[in-house]
Structure formats: structure tokens, C-alpha cells
């Protein structure tokens, strides 16, 4: 009897979970569905069965060079992630392993910069970029994305590093490891899972960043976010083309997220389950 009840509960919860997941995922699904419609179909109202035409994709590719935007997205997200890690690993490291009285304040200050709306600094940053010739440059945008995500990267790494028990490092020191040996043989292997999931998350954040990437680029450095935006302006709205562009833009990151989900989940729940 108890068994039957619990089976029924499992079924109910499974169905509920699927429904909720579908609701959350539906906008993305509908984007993909719409991308396989013709423009007339797309405009006709709600319909989840597309005709399956790929004319929107052909149009999108003919109109602008997807590959160039894609390359920019890769360069910007990887570049800014590497740069952020380069700064964040030592920063988080020193705060986690030799904290001072001000460490907590510094961390809060870093986080507080994320609380400000980006638009509040749009004008000064735009002017700075213009005056230093950084508008529409990959270098300028890489730096910008690094700065935006740095607080989150440092926070994540800091929490991971804090999880590494100090006694293990002391044991390594007693065992005769030099600072270098300690870093290479003990700390790095223990920190790698945390660094890897921070890296993945930051790539996703940088890939999806749309506020600055759209405003600080025109053609040369424009990533896929700008690619999507370019289909919503000039000659009115073209839902099917816009959807095709969006699908093309999110596909790479969805695929990456799919393959690394184990690592991502493990990283995000690091410490919670051990």
C-alpha cells in the first residue's frame, strides 16, 4: 500500500517537474520552432507546428556573416574569461588563505559594483572608449567583459578556495613541499574543479552579455548578441529571421552547457554535498 502511494507521488512529482521545466524552457523552444517558419507563418499567431522551412536561416546567412560574429563571441568570451581568471585566481587565493581585517569589506565592495545598473556608467564608459579608440575593438570589449564579471569570478573562486582545509596545506608544508610544490601538487589539483566551473559559468555569462557588447561595437568586434539585435532594427520586424538568428547565437553555448553540465552542477554545489 505504502509502495503504491509513493509510486503515485513519484509520478505526480515527475509530471510536475516536466511541466515546470517545459514552461521555463518554452521561450527558447518557441524561438527554435519559429526559426523554422516562413515570415508569413510567424506573424500569424500562436502555432507550435512549423512548416519546417529553412528559408530564414538562408536569409540570415545571406544577409550577414554568422561566422564572423561567432568568432567574435568565442574570442570575447574566452579572452575575457582567461583574463578574469588571471586576475581572480591570485586575488581570491590571497583573500582565502591569508585574509586580513579588510578582506570581508573588499569582497563586499566588489559585489556592490554589481548592484549598480550598468546604464548609470554608460556615458562615461562610452566616452572613455571613444577617446582611447577602443570602440568596436575586441581588446576594449574583452577588457570590459572582464571587468563586468570579475566580482562574480572572484567571489566564486574565493568560496571554492575557502573550502580547501588549511591543515592540508600545512601538511604539505611539513612534508617538505616548497611554495611551488604546494601550489602544483596540492592546491591546484584541489582547486581545479572549482576553477573549471567558474570558468564555464563565466564563459556563459560573457557569451550572453548584451548590454555592453551591443553598445560598444558596430561591425568589427560585434559578437552574436549584436548579430541578433541587427535583425530587429532596419526594415521592421522579421520574427522568423530573428528567431533563426537567435537560435544560431545560443546554439553553441547550449551545446557547451549540455556537455559540461556535470561539471557545472558539481561546481555550483561544491561543498553542499561532499
Amino acid at each position: 500500500m505504502a509502495r503504491a502511494v509513493s509510486t503515485r507521488r513519484t509520478v505526480v512529482f515527475t509530471i510536475a517537474a516536466w511541466i515546470i521545466a517545459l514552461i521555463i524552457f518554452f521561450p527558447i523552444l518557441y524561438t527554435i520552432i519559429t526559426s523554422f517558419k516562413s515570415e508569413t507563418e510567424a506573424i500569424q499567431g500562436f502555432n507550435i507546428v512549423p512548416s519546417g522551412t529553412v528559408e530564414s536561416y538562408q536569409a540570415v546567412q545571406a544577409q550577414s556573416n554568422y561566422f564572423k560574429f561567432f568568432l567574435n563571441s568565442v574570442i570575447l568570451s574566452l579572452g575575457s574569461t582567461l583574463l578574469a581568471l588571471l586576475i581572480a585566481v591570485p586575488a581570491a587565493w590571497s583573500m582565502a588563505f591569508s585574509p586580513t581585517a579588510k578582506t570581508k569589506d573588499i569582497l563586499m565592495w566588489m559585489l556592490s559594483t554589481k548592484m549598480m545598473p550598468a546604464v548609470a556608467v554608460l556615458v562615461p564608459i562610452y566616452l572613455l572608449f571613444r577617446d582611447f579608440g577602443l570602440l568596436d575593438s575586441r581588446i576594449g570589449l574583452t577588457v570590459m567583459l572582464t571587468m563586468i564579471n570579475l566580482p562574480i569570478v572572484i567571489w566564486m573562486l574565493y568560496t571554492y578556495f575557502r573550502e580547501i582545509p588549511g591543515e592540508i596545506l600545512e601538511a604539505a608544508r611539513m612534508d617538505g613541499a616548497s611554495l611551488w610544490g604546494e601550489i602544483v601538487y596540492v592546491l591546484t589539483p584541489m582547486a581545479v574543479p572549482g576553477i573549471a566551473s567558474t570558468m564555464l559559468l563565466n564563459i556563459i555569462l560573457a557569451w550572453n552579455e548584451a548590454f555592453w557588447t551591443i553598445r560598444l561595437t558596430t561591425t568589427n568586434a560585434a559578437p552574436l548578441t549584436a548579430f541578433i539585435a541587427s535583425f530587429s532594427s532596419p526594415q521592421g520586424l522579421f520574427w522568423a529571421k530573428l528567431s533563426a538568428a537567435s537560435t544560431l547565437a545560443i546554439a553553441p553555448i547550449l551545446i557547451m552547457g549540455w556537455f559540461s553540465q556535470k561539471q557545472l552542477v558539481r561546481g555550483l554545489t561544491f561543498g553542499a554535498v561532499k
Binding site: P165, E167, I168, A172, D175
Partner: peptide
């Protein structure tokens, strides 16, 4: 050589 309370194994 030291043996720690938490063992501190790698």
C-alpha cells in the same frame, strides 16, 4: 613530522 586531528590527507 606531524599527524593532524583531521588527518589532512591529500
Amino acid at each position: 613530522a606531524m599527524v593532524f586531528q583531521s588527518y589532512a590527507l591529500y
